[in-house]
Structure formats: C-alpha cells, structure tokens
Design a protein around this nucleic acid. Structure first.
Lengths: 341, 341
DNA sequence: TATTTTTGCGCAATCGATTGCATATTACAA
DNA sequence: TTGTAATATGCAATCGATTGCGCAAAAATA
C-alpha cells in the first residue's frame, strides 16, 4: 500500500527542469528565479512531496538530530530538562533522541556509540553516578562533536556545562533554617564525593559558619538519600538522644522519610523540628506539612543547555571556549520550616 | 579537528577487497567466509570504524528511528511511558525521537510531518485533548507507516492502541470504598465526554449498582480535576450539608485538593471520610494519609505499546488487524481509605 | 574425469538530496 | 553593435552503505 515516494526528481520531471533546480528552489537559493520557485513549491504541494531528511543529512553531513542521555527518563527532574531541550530544539527544527543509561557506565558508552552511528549532530548528557572515567566523552570532543553536560557534570572534560549552584542552594536552605531560630541543624547527604552533594554540604557548613554556629560532624548523616535512607538516618539521629531542631536534607526523598519518622514519633514539624529538602520534587507540595525545598528549574536548565549546545554547533571557529553556566536555585519556603508564620 | 570519517571503503582498501564484501561481512552475511569476516571485523576495529546509519537507512528505506508524540514530556505518566518504550526500542537497536504537542492539534500535525521527514519507521502517539479530527493519522496509515496509539486514543482510526481499563479501575476503587463500609460515595469527574473519565464514572456507577446502593447525581461533581478544582468541589460538597462518607476522585490531584480541605475542616480521613484517587501519581504515597489510588502501570504501557508497534513493523503481510490492548489497572490501597486495618 | 552445485566475492546501480563547476540566456555598458 | 557581467539552470559527482546479478574457483556428485 505504500504509495510511491515522491522525490525532487518527480517534481523536476513534472516541470521539465532538473533536480538541482528543484533542490535549490526548495532551499530558497537566491540563484533561482521567483517564477521557478513558485512553480516548484506549487508542484511540491500538488504531488504531496515530503523531503527525505536522511538523504539530505547524508549529503550534508548533518542530521538535524541531537541526542540526550539521562540516567532515567521518568524522573521529574530529568523529564523536565528534556522538555526544555525539546522546546528549544524543536523551534530550530532539530529532533531529540532520548536514551537512558540507568546509571550504568557501559550503557552510557553503548548509547553514545549508538547515537554517533545515528549521526546525531551532538549530544547532551547528564552523567551517571558511577561513571568515573570519561574517555568516551573526550573522544567525542576530539571528533569535533558538540557535547554539553548538565546537572551531573565533571570538570575533567573540557566542554560546556550547565549546573545549578548547589552550594548556594545548600547555603540558602540552611540560612533559612537558622533565621527560623534553629541552631542545631542536622544534615543528610550522599557520599560526599558526588559533586552536587558535596556542594550542598559546603553551603550548609558555610551558612553555619556565617552565623557562628559550631559545626557538629555527628549531625551529618551519609546515605543513598532515598526515602528509606531518610527514615533510617532519622531513626539513628533520634536514637542518639542528641538534640537537634532542624534537618536539612540534600534530597527531597530523604526529607520525606524524615518527615514520616518524625510524625511517627509525634514530633511536631516545624515547631519541634524544622525540615528542608532539595530539588522541589513535585510531591513536596503535597506532603503534610508541605516541604520547604530548593528549586532547580529543570525546564530552564534544559533550555539553557540546548542554547549552549546550539551556540557550539553554530560557531564557525574550531576552538570553542567551554562555558560553564551556573543557574541560581530558588528556595521554596513552605510550612515544614516556617516557625514564625 | 574532525578526523576523516572511515567508511567501509577504507576497510575494503586496507584488505584489498570490495566494499560489498565488507558490508556483507559486517552484516554477518552467510555468503562471506569466516576468514574474511574476522579480517573485516579486525580491520574495522583497528581503523575505529563507525557505521553511518544514515547511509544504510537511505538505502534500505528504514531508519531504525521511531517517533513518539505526547502532550507533555514532563508528566510522570508520559515520561514513564516513554521510559517503557525506550527500553524495548533500545534492545531492538531502535532510537526514540520524542516530541510534545502541548495539547495543540497544529503542533501535532507539524510534529508528525517533521517525524515523517526524519523518516522514522513509525510513530507512537498519545493524542492531545483538543484533537477532534484525525486525518493526519489516517494518512499515516494509508502510507503504510506503523502507528500505535496509547492512553489517549480514538476508535476512529483503524490502528492498534493500548489503554487501561478505566471502567475497571473506577469499579474497583468504588467497590473498595463500599467494602470499607461507605455507602454515600461522592465522585469527582471531568467533563464526561472525555472517554477515560466517562469510563471511570461508569465503573463508579456500576459498582454502586452491584451493591444496591442508590446512585445520587447530586454527589457527582464535574470539574477540570486539578488540585484547586478538587478543593472547590469539596467545599461545595461540604456546604450543601449533604451527608457523604467517601470521595472517589477520578484524578489524584483533585483528591489531593479534597484531602486538604477535609483536613482544614478537621474531618478525619479515612474515619469520617474515606478518599480514593486515580493514576497513582508519585506524590500519592507522600500525602498524609497516603492516598488510595489506581495504578495505570505507565512503564508497562510503554513496553506493551512498543511491542505492539514492533509487531506491526515486523509483520510481512500488508494487512494487519489492529489490536486493542487493554491493560488491567491495579487498585493501590493506602491509608486514606483503610478503615478496618 | 566430466558435470553440477556450492561458495566467496566483485561489479555497478541505487537510495534522494546537495553542490561545485559549467553553460546558456539575458541585460547592460561602452 | 559588441563585449561583459549577471542571472538562471543543467551536469554529474558525491555522501556511505546495500544488494541483485554475475562469475570464477572450489567442492560435490555422477
């Protein structure tokens, strides 16, 4: 049933001109007369011509496709970034190929290769947690293929990246808790070698320092930062008998876990213990009390990353100075931390 | 800096054979000797050969790309479906191009065209709310291009679709509330002409009927089903003074709104009023109490849709009988409705 | 040993659009 | 009127891989 594909040759035949002319007419080449252009456009419409991007891509060496690799697609943050990227790309008539690494280095490498074989014009990546060597990305750059990292980035590759200021976010959240009158603020963090968590941790410490509150290492708990980890950490924290009046969790999920345990112990939030998370996960406005958190503006991050990407793509000069764009996070204050409200 | 691209011709030259042989060797054609295959593979590796899918796609007429159109990428349900599709596609060495219609018919048409020009091998679509004519999809089918609809579908196009049994979900949720001892169950729904809401409503009514509970139209509230709508409906419901002991909301968001208002009125959930939503939005497990809801298994839906898609794609025969796959939803019972527990 | 079959590979066209380099026509200046 | 420039279009190669057809050499069969 597949109707014969109509090509520029069919148009050419119909108008008794050559395919070259048709191609130029369709691409609005100035060396084609207005009359011919009109005729071509008209014929194209009447024949229901659909250009074959593959052929053009092959010939031109650019596919109008860009690849994006994230750890998992169905997480609010990442899907929002993808949304942002798609918006920008779509306007510029580029298509976005998505793929997920599942935090697995080998997948990352395989996907990167697959994208290269599909001849994407470039790639946007949020690096998996366990990725520790970056040769596959470096070789991308050597081949001159645009690469932009976002959120989960590294400085080991000389390429543009877009991140949020995790330090500032950590600082703001902590400062906010301090201003609410908290002085013994616990902190939940991930293994601190992961950059973003380290930065949030730094922000936490510096805020304490600024307000001359002694830093107490025994109030800092490391975990994998999922809901259950948050629960565990909170239980441990409570069992030590150590006094504290707030928890700043570097993840919303761990904060949610903390909230559960605190409530199970009939500890009032925020009166007894104030709570702040990080990421502005969609669920945070639905907890009771709603969770104070830090927004990372994922859609905007996607847009900025895409813009940064196209800047590289369109720059004629071979040497591009890698840009590091740092977005400002925003503290979202909700009831979980609002003592004087 | 772009290193010269190495092609099969380079491999051919190196081994003093022809490109045809190289191509066949790489594709594991049985008519090529093992010796030659090994040599080609070896040479390909040493030259760091990367196949150009564009060229192959052009020649073969299939791109190994599939397109997917959703209203918005960054919604839990849709991003999860995409995740499922990507998983299946990736295993079969297909790439997934995502795009979002923003519930706009014109975007839908434009995106569809863009995908066609990119020569995707087929398309998966969740139709926008406002789309009322389907010619653009019908013409896809006429061209013999595989199309699978999921979640937001229509019977007006003779093509495969994957949906969940909304009727059953509505029935199960209502039945559950009844079994908890509720007899005056309010229902929040959307304009009932939207299929999925109508089905849930039907399920609600039939469950009542099965248990010989009189249906009371004045307990049914129509709205746009966002959080605020849920709040409004609940307020109205309360202000009527009408007795009710449960709310089955066809949307989790409206249910969350209801929960807020009930709590503001110091009405105990579930003791005074039991609550159930629909969709199993990620936030529902974080509310207090956690919300009983109906899971739609979006990842599985994506997988099934993809499988259905590849079935069409791989079927040799021209005529494919459109399959309508109806997935079973699952009632997720949580504290918001558990009276005896 | 003669004949048929199988195996392994080369030749060359092809997919559809782009583009550098002619060439023909028209316009314009001298 | 003639030479020159500008304009509009054609020719043919090209992008990189695939594939139907053909053919020689090797293997199997008669």
């Amino acid at each position: 049933m597949t109707s014969k594909k109509v090509t520029i040759h069919d148009i050419a035949k119909k108008l008794d001109i050559t395919a070259s002319t048709v191609s130029r007419a369709l691409n609005n080449n100035p060396r084609i007369s207005e009359t011919t252009k009109k005729a071509v456009l008209e014929a194209a419409r009447s024949l229901n011509y659909q250009p074959n991007n593959l052929a053009a891509a092959l010939r031109k060496g650019k596919s109008q496709l860009i690849g994006i690799i994230v750890p998992t697609i169905n997480r609010s943050f990442f899907s929002s970034v993808i949304r942002g990227v798609e918006e920008v790309a779509n306007k510029l008539d580029y298509r976005v190929i998505v793929s997920q690494s599942n935090e697995n280095v080998e997948n990352e490498i395989a996907l990167l290769n697959a994208l290269l074989n599909a001849r994407v014009d470039g790639v946007l990546v949020s690096i998996g947690k366990n990725t520790e060597h970056f040769d596959h990305y470096k070789s991308l750059l050597k081949k001159g293929i645009p690469l932009v990292l976002f959120d989960r980035t590294t400085n080991e590759i000389g390429t543009s990246q877009v991140i949020i200021d995790d330090y500032l976010g950590g600082f703001q959240a902590t400062e906010h808790l301090i201003k609410q009158g908290c002085t013994k603020i616990a902190h939940f963090t991930n293994v601190k070698l992961v950059n973003i968590y380290h930065e949030r941790y730094r922000g936490y410490k510096n805020a304490l320092e600024k307000y001359q509150i002694p830093f107490d290492d025994s109030l800092v708990y490391e975990s994998n930062m999922q809901l259950d980890d948050g629960r565990e950490c909170t239980k441990k924290l409570l069992s030590t008998g150590k006094e504290f009046d707030a928890i700043f969790s570097a993840s919303d999920y761990a904060a949610a876990g903390a909230m559960q345990v605190l409530k199970e112990h009939h500890i009032k939030i925020p009166e007894d213990i104030a709570l702040a998370g990080f990421s502005n996960e969609p669920f945070t406005s639905f907890t009771d009390p709603p969770l104070t958190t830090v927004s990372q503006f994922p859609i905007e991050m996607g847009q900025v990353a895409a813009e940064s990407f196209f800047e590289i793509l369109n720059s004629k000069k071979k040497k591009i100075i890698p840009q590091k764009t740092v977005l400002q996070p925003e503290l979202i204050i909700r009831a979980s931390s609002l003592k004087n409200g």
